[in-house]
Amino acid sequence: TTLHFDLDGKKLQYTGVSEEIARLVEELKRRGVDLKEIVRILEELLK
């Protein structure tokens, strides 16, 4: 799965993300978590 974000005018793309992580990101968005925080979490998970 590939995730795309537009953060402060920067286009971020994460490829090869598992379905689980993609679902987690969608859930965080639904809960109103700040996009910067979501990206920070995502980068930690993908290390």
Rank of each mutant, 00 (worst) to 15 (best):
T1V: 15
T1W: 09
T1D: 07
T1Q: 14
T1N: 11
L3V: 08
L3E: 02
H4V: 14
H4W: 14
H4A: 08
H4Q: 12
H4G: 05
F5G: 01
F5Q: 01
F5H: 01
F5N: 01
F5E: 01
F5I: 08
D6W: 09
D6G: 01
D6H: 07
D6T: 06
D6S: 03
D6N: 06
L7V: 13
L7T: 03
L7M: 10
D8S: 03
D8L: 03
G9I: 02
G9H: 03
G9A: 02
K10D: 12
K11V: 13
K11S: 10
K11L: 08
K11M: 11
K11R: 08
L12H: 08
L12S: 05
Q13N: 10
Q13K: 13
Q13L: 13
Y14E: 00
T15M: 10
T15A: 11
T15Y: 09
G16N: 14
V17G: 01
V17R: 00
V17F: 02
V17A: 03
S18R: 05
S18E: 05
S18F: 02
S18P: 12
E19N: 11
E19G: 12
E19Q: 12
E19S: 08
E19W: 12
E19D: 15
E20V: 06
E20R: 08
E20Q: 11
E20S: 13
I21A: 09
I21K: 03
I21P: 02
I21N: 11
I21T: 14
A22N: 08
A22G: 15
A22H: 09
R23L: 15
L24K: 15
L24R: 15
L24S: 12
L24G: 08
V25S: 03
V25P: 00
V25G: 01
V25M: 07
E26H: 09
L28W: 09
L28T: 02
L28V: 03
L28A: 06
L28R: 02
K29Y: 14
K29D: 12
K29G: 11
R30D: 14
R30L: 14
R30A: 14
R30C: 06
R30F: 13
R31L: 14
R31M: 12
R31G: 15
G32P: 05
G32K: 03
G32D: 12
V33T: 15
V33Q: 10
D34M: 09
D34P: 09
L35C: 06
L35P: 12
K36H: 14
K36C: 04
K36T: 14
K36F: 14
E37G: 05
E37V: 07
E37F: 05
E37K: 06
I38P: 00
I38T: 04
I38C: 03
I38Q: 06
V39L: 10
R40E: 08
R40V: 14
R40C: 03
I41K: 06
I41D: 03
L42P: 00
L42T: 05
E43G: 04
E43K: 03
E43D: 12
E44L: 07
E44F: 07
L45T: 11
L45A: 15
L45H: 10
L45M: 14
L45F: 06
L46P: 02
L46T: 05
L46Y: 05
L46D: 03
L46K: 03
L46I: 10
K47F: 11
K47I: 10
